[in-house]
Amino acid sequence: MKKYEYKTVEFEADDSKLSKSMHIDSTEIEQILNNLGEQGWELVNSIDYALNGFTRKVILFFKREKNQ
Rank of each mutant, 00 (worst) to 15 (best):
M1N: 15
K2P: 09
K2Q: 09
K3H: 15
K3T: 09
E5F: 13
E5I: 00
Y6K: 02
V9M: 13
E10M: 15
F11R: 08
E12H: 12
D15Y: 07
S16E: 10
S16Y: 07
K17S: 12
K17D: 11
L18F: 12
L18V: 10
S19W: 08
S19N: 12
S19A: 13
K20N: 01
S21I: 02
S21M: 09
S21D: 07
I24S: 10
D25R: 04
S26F: 09
T27M: 04
T27F: 07
E28H: 03
I29Q: 09
Q31S: 11
I32C: 04
I32D: 07
I32Q: 06
I32E: 12
L33F: 13
N34D: 10
N34R: 08
N35G: 10
E38A: 15
G40H: 10
G40T: 12
G40D: 08
W41Q: 09
W41C: 07
E42G: 08
L43A: 03
V44C: 01
V44A: 03
V44W: 04
V44Q: 03
V44M: 15
N45H: 05
N45L: 06
N45K: 02
S46K: 14
D48E: 14
D48G: 14
D48H: 11
Y49D: 15
Y49M: 12
Y49T: 15
N52T: 10
F54S: 02
T55V: 12
T55F: 05
K57W: 03
K57C: 00
K57Y: 05
V58W: 01
L60E: 05
F61P: 01
F61G: 02
F62E: 00
F62S: 02
F62K: 01
K63R: 05
K63T: 02
R64V: 04
R64L: 03
R64H: 08
K66F: 02
N67H: 15
N67Y: 08
Q68F: 13
Q68D: 03
